[in-house]
């Protein structure tokens, strides 16, 4: 039992970071690509801009997740950026 708990304590944060990078990063990138539609430009241009920018957002999110001191901070950072993007995306969906 204790060894299982020990394992969770040891690998839990790493697994959490990997999940934040893979799925959190993608979600943030997807959110950004939709949020771009709120910008004052024609829809096709905004769609393409969002698609092109999304990969840079994704890459930056992954780097952030592994650069900060803890898994908790990694998730917090993603959420802080996601909040305004979510608002913008909400307005256009």
């Amino acid at each position: 039992m204790t060894s299982v708990a020990g394992r969770v304590r040891r690998f839990g944060p790493l697994v959490s970071r990997i999940a934040a990078a893979l799925f959190g990063g993608y979600a943030l990138a997807a959110l950004a690509s939709v949020a771009v539609l709120a910008l004052p430009m024609s829809t096709p241009q905004a769609v393409l801009t969002g698609e092109m920018a999304s990969f840079l957002v994704y890459a930056a999110a992954v780097l952030w997740v592994f650069a900060v001191r803890s898994a908790l901070r990694a998730w917090a950072g993603l959420l802080v950026v996601a909040a305004p993007l979510l608002l913008a995306a909400w307005s256009v969906w």
Binding site: S33, V34, V36, E51
Partner: peptide, 15 residues
């Protein structure tokens, strides 16, 4: 970018 519409279809679906 060459396949971005496949990887990131969300903007298109929304707009």
């Amino acid at each position: 970018v060459t396949l971005m519409a496949l990887y990131m279809p969300w903007g298109q679906q929304a707009g």
